[in-house]
């Protein structure tokens, strides 16, 4: 039978992670557009956090596989 708990976990995890990535990138663009001196570092910080989220995605894809390969 179908594992509904696993499906709900997938839905929530996908929703939260996609919204976090989009929010961070959007705020990076928003703060990068303006004259005030404080906006640029905040924009950079948003992009860095978004990049960290992407790196986490890459780790999720390849991390386990790399560990298996290096453990041989």
């Amino acid at each position: 039978m179908i594992d509904w708990l696993a499906f709900v976990s997938v839905f929530v995890a996908a929703l939260v992670s996609a919204c976090i990535a989009v929010t961070l990138f959007s705020l990076g663009l928003r703060f990068g557009d303006g004259e005030a001196a404080w906006r640029r570092p905040v924009s950079v910080m948003m992009f860095v956090l978004c990049a960290a989220a992407v790196l986490l995605g890459i780790y999720i894809i390849v991390g386990d596989h790399l560990m298996v390969l290096f453990a041989r």
Binding site: S9, V10, A13, A14, S17, A18, A21, V22, G57, I60
Partner: peptide, 10 residues
Amino acid sequence: SATTATILAS
């Protein structure tokens, strides 16, 4: 982003 997040989570 939605595609990536859904595939990775699944």
